[in-house]
Amino acid sequence: MLYVALTVLLALGLAWYLWDYIKKQQHRTALPPPPKTVIEFWVYAEDPKLPSQEAIVEAIRGTPEIAKRFGPEEGLVFSDIRFSLGTVPREKNPYLFQQDTVLEKDAVLPDDFANRAERAAAIHTIRFVAEEPKYDDREAAALRLCAFCAVAIAALARGTLVVDIEAQSAWTPEEFERLVRQDPMGLDWNTAVREVTEEGDVVYLTRGLAKRGMYDLVTPQIAPDQRTVTKSLLEQVVEAAWQNPETQGPRVRTVKLEKIYDMNFMCLWYVGEPSRERHRSPWINCRFLRLGADDELDMDAEA
């Protein structure tokens, strides 16, 4: 009888171990559903009244460098149900005017952020959210329009700050307008690769890829002698994904081959652990593997 009981317990233990192993492997190899395309700017302003759409369009057309990029495609986004403008008065949501509430520890912001936020009577929001992202000309136009609207609203409502929620960056209205005038789709300000220390471990993560309907990436712990190369490789992956969102990057889980310092690397990504989930969308873990000189890689292969 004791022998039978031990056999049953052993069988149950083995079955549980196999089930747990299979679930972990599925979690590691399967990507979650495609993330939303999320574009979101907050304009902290002294004037609590949101300017009308007509006033915003007039302000956009009154800036030559921006007006030349404002065409029918951008204008049509105003009527897209995925696009919205809103206002958050200070008296109803005072906590949104506190830096620690709005931005995370890796955020880049002006030194006088607190003073500028204190001067604001309201936050005017510009959002475009696609539940089922299909990156096309409309979504590209939406990114440009959201940036144009942020510039216009800051000018009309006496803005004190412009915050990019997805990139976790903030600028003075003057700085933001300069960036948008140069390039509303600019990689250098729409995205970021940042070093973050978590419980003593240094990892690198990306910001802003949700604007292109993709996951942001996070590396495992990086040793000191590998940090420069890792950051450079991650920047290359972000650039390729930003320029070709339908064929590159974690949205389609493509394996990429990067080259730096005359060495070849393979970048692969897989679903992150729950502890890596921050902000709005799951983060995807990425890892770089150095390849030998004779190694070959099918650029369209899956990790």
Rank of each mutant, 00 (worst) to 15 (best):
V151W: 06
A155E: 14
R207I: 10
V238G: 06
P224E: 10
Y204P: 01
S232R: 13
F148C: 03
V229M: 14
E198G: 04
V237P: 00
D188Q: 12
F148V: 05
A157P: 09
A141N: 09
Y215D: 01
G200M: 09
G186L: 01
E198W: 07
A170D: 07
R181L: 04
W171L: 10
V237S: 15
V180W: 02
A192I: 01
E177R: 09
I222Q: 06
G213R: 12
E166S: 06
A154I: 02
R227T: 08
I222A: 08
D216A: 05
R194Q: 15
E174W: 03
D136H: 12
R212I: 09
E166M: 13
L145W: 09
R181W: 06
V229T: 14
P224Q: 13
L143E: 15
V151M: 05
I153L: 10
D183M: 03
E177I: 01
A142G: 07
A150G: 13
V238L: 15
E174F: 06
A142K: 05
F148N: 00
Y215A: 00
V203D: 09
Q168K: 06
T197D: 14
L156G: 04
T172G: 07
A147L: 07
G208W: 05
L187I: 14
D183F: 09
A210E: 14
T230V: 11
A157W: 04
A154Q: 00
V229R: 12
E239W: 06
A157H: 07
K211L: 11
D183S: 05
P220K: 11
I153G: 10
E139N: 04
T228A: 15
K231A: 12
A142L: 08
T160M: 10
A170I: 01
V151A: 01
D201C: 04
G208D: 02
D183P: 09
L179I: 09
L217D: 00
T172S: 14
Y204E: 05
R181A: 11
G200D: 13
E175Q: 15
Y215E: 03
L233M: 08
V151F: 05
A170L: 02
K231F: 08
D188P: 02
L233A: 07
P173H: 00
P184N: 07
T191P: 06
Q182M: 10
A154Y: 12
E174A: 10
P173E: 03
A140F: 12
